[in-house]
């Protein structure tokens, strides 16, 4: 698999405090990678290291296959667009001038790209209005527009929907999906809004206390969070025989527990097992969300 970003035992120390410990992260090309973690977990530190705003203490990372201490790393960073903590925009200038300035920083000729980018983010009709008079959503979209200058292949967004109203959240979400699907841009998004992230992310990385504790794809997550009926029975073999007979999908978890993934007729199920001398000890339906999964994961580590 081709990775846009790969970190190997990445470590960042502030004097004696370790902000990042042995971070191993794999971001596949074309993915929308959701970086999830509580405040102070190390999300922004990790992003700042990748963007070159801070130096790595130990370990290494590659961007588009180029190692961080290689001389060519700045060439790789030119293919990155980023919004870190807050949109980096000049408030005294209008949207178009902000993009012109970014073009000049990168060294790109001024052409129709600016109009196209403004149209993409929906800021083509703001005219000469200064960025200071923009709403938070508009500022966020302008930040994204600046990140889009130079046709990046990889965009890093740190808390892109913080403080946005529901409409602004939908706008940003749709924009990210559009850019990912139409232009094939890879995204790394850190966010606390798990439900929002669950709507767009294709991969997840869970970070806690400076460590990536789990990396999982959306398919795996859906599989893990699948709606299921958890039952504990006295005789698993008899129960399995019944489930096989009725062609119901299931998974044996332990000598007592079975997870059933299909809808079942409960009264018929209870009667049938009773006829087979199998007692149901416990019966519960479960459907996990990303939030539950996250809490279980972090809580499971004894951190909550």
């Amino acid at each position: 698999m081709e990775y846009v970003l790969e970190t190997r035992n990445l470590e960042k120390k502030y004097k004696k405090f370790k902000a990042l410990k042995n971070v191993n992260m794999h971001l596949p090309k074309g993915a929308i990678y959701g970086l999830i973690g509580k405040n102070g977990a190390g999300k922004t530190t990790l992003i700042r290291l990748i963007c070159g705003l801070q130096k790595v203490t130990n370990g290494s990372y590659t961007i588009f296959g180029i190692l961080n201490n290689s001389k060519k790393i700045n060439m790789a960073r030119k293919r990155i667009g980023a919004i870190i903590e807050q949109p980096s925009i000049c408030l005294d200038m209008n949207a178009k001038d902000n993009l012109i300035e970014q073009c000049k920083i990168i060294g790109l000729p001024l052409n129709n790209d600016i109009k196209e980018i403004l149209k993409t983010v929906g800021l083509d009709d703001v005219g000469k209005k200064k960025a200071t008079n923009f709403s938070l959503g508009m500022k966020q979209r302008l930040g994204l527009a600046i990140a889009l200058v130079g046709h990046p292949d990889f965009i890093i967004l740190d808390e892109p929907i913080n403080g946005l109203d529901p409409e602004g959240i939908i706008e940003i979400r749709e924009l990210i999906i559009k850019l990912n699907q139409e232009k094939g841009i890879t995204f790394l998004i850190s966010s606390h809004y798990l439900d929002e992230l669950a709507k767009i992310a294709t991969h997840y990385g869970f970070i806690d206390n400076g460590e990536i504790i789990k990396e999982i794809s959306n398919e795996e997550l859906i599989k893990n969070c699948r709606k299921r009926t958890e039952i504990r029975v006295s005789d698993v073999k008899e129960c399995v025989k019944y489930l096989e007979q009725e062609k119901i999908s299931y998974e044996v978890i332990s000598e007592e527990q079975i997870n059933i993934y299909d809808d079942i007729n409960i009264s018929e199920f209870v009667v049938s097992l009773s006829n087979r001398n199998c007692t149901i000890i416990e019966f519960k339906e479960k459907e996990e969300t990303l939030e539950n999964y996250y809490i279980n994961l972090i809580g499971g580590e004894g951190n909550v």
Binding site: C51, G52, L53, R77, I80, A82, I84, E85, Q86, P87, S88, I89, C90, E101, Q102, I105, I146
Partner: peptide, 8 residues
């Protein structure tokens, strides 16, 4: 924060 755009 525009200095970040330049550093990156």
């Amino acid at each position: 924060g525009t200095v970040k755009n330049k550093i990156i």
